[in-house]
Design a protein around this nucleic acid. Structure first.
Length: 370
DNA sequence: GCATCCCGCCACCCC
DNA sequence: GGGGTGGCGGGATGC
């Protein structure tokens, strides 16, 4: 493989500093959902989306593939996807779980119930049985042939599904990406393959994190980074249907900024002219926000998350107060009921940030009116 | 030094 | 044939 063109270099770009967190897939996913997660959306065009989010088309494919595997989007035609919304997630997760157990049963019948005392080996064995057959078959195919079927087997969408199945259909609600990569590769010991798989899992994990399907944690024993499933608790694992509330309710608060993996309080300057989500000082600048979407009703906050860009119109004295109350009503109505204390705290933190931002906007309006 | 993951090349797909 | 799709891994950034 040829060496790709160098990434924008801080030294080359003079005084600007590159901050990759502002371009992360997780953040992009949050912004994507902020853009489309509302009533009246039926079709998503890739070109339009890339333009509105100010990113390369290639990045949209990554997001779309993951979202498609959890049912949010369905491919309609070239360049076009049908928006099914976050409400379609529970059904998709249910199907994944069903598929996982179905494959599992078939595999167990063939393998005549191997029992292992070793927990890791048990999970690994069990997990490998859950994967789509097409993926299992790929493990036995000779490497090197790059036919279409082989290509599909390695798709980000399929990898996402299998990754989710690991959580939905095993007793482990905590998994390191390294372990996940090894499981998804079967017994492959090729470090290069594992490394590549881990890279893709990072991509997927970032998107799933931004949707709060999973959260990044530190493994209590190994102290190594791992991911925990939030979309379905371990207690109910394999016993109940998919939990709809978390993923669905996240959509309601997404505009407040929910990304778990891209907390970037630094306001780095961007050297990329394509991305205009921030100004050079890291302050929101309405004129530039428009480049995200000329008719979009959202814009980025200081961390790059899209928030409602249409600030309250100056009106009579009580107007802002009423609108503030409206937002507070929205907050209380849509406040997610997290099982996880850290998430609860995080949500409270974001709500405080939102209130602060809103009051600042209200103050600015008062000044403009004066 | 290791974990993370953006970036864009280019092989393959499909109209 | 050509545009769309997306696998892949180099290497930069973050900690």
């Amino acid at each position: 493989m040829l060496v790709p063109s160098p990434s924008p270099s801080p030294s080359v770009s003079g005084s600007t500093t590159y901050c990759r967190k502002q371009k992360s897939l997780g953040l992009l996913c949050s912004n994507f959902l902020s853009l489309y997660n509302r009533d009246g959306i039926d079709t998503v065009g890739l070109d339009e989306t890339a333009g509105r989010l100010g990113v390369e088309r290639r990045r949209i494919y990554d997001i779309v593939n993951v979202l498609e595997s959890v049912g949010v989007l369905v491919r309609k035609a070239k360049n076009t996807y049908h928006w099914r919304g976050l409400g379609a997630i529970p059904k998709a997760l249910g199907q994944l779980k069903e598929e996982g157990f179905k494959n599992n049963d078939e595999q167990i019948e063939v393998k005549s119930g191997k029992v292992s005392d070793d927990e890791d080996e048990r999970i690994s064995h069990h997990s490998a049985c859950l994967l789509d057959k097409v993926d299992l078959d790929s493990m036995h195919k000779a490497a090197g042939s790059f036919k279409s079927e082989n290509r599909k087997e390695k798709s980000l969408g399929l990898l996402t599904k299998n990754f989710i199945k690991l959580f939905l259909c095993t007793n482990s609600d905590m998994l390191s990406l390294d372990d996940a990569a090894k499981i998804l590769l079967g017994d492959a010991q090729n470090p290069s393959l594992t490394r590549t798989k881990v890279r893709r899992l990072y991509d997927i994990a970032n998107v799933l994190s931004s949707m709060n399907f999973i959260e990044k944690i530190q493994h209590p024993e190994t102290r190594k980074p791992a991911f925990r499933w939030l979309g379905m608790t371990s207690q109910t694992n394999c016993q109940t249907g998919p939990v709809t509330s978390v993923a669905h309710q996240e959509s309601k608060k997404r505009a407040f900024g929910t990304d778990l993996t891209n907390i970037c309080f630094k306001r780095s300057k961007l050297d990329d002219q394509k991305l205009t989500l921030f100004d050079l000082q890291g302050q929101c600048q309405p004129s530039k926000l428009n480049t995200v979407g000329s008719n979009s009703n959202v814009g980025p906050d200081q961390d790059g998350h899209l928030v409602p860009a249409s600030k309250p119109k100056p009106c009579d004295g009580g107007c802002n107060k009423v609108k503030t109350q409206d937002w507070e009503n929205v907050e209380s109505e849509y406040r997610p009921q997290y099982h996880n204390q850290a998430l609860r705290d995080l949500f409270v933190h974001y709500m405080e940030a939102w209130k602060s931002w809103y009051s600042q906007v209200a103050e600015m309006d008062k000044i403009e009116v004066i």
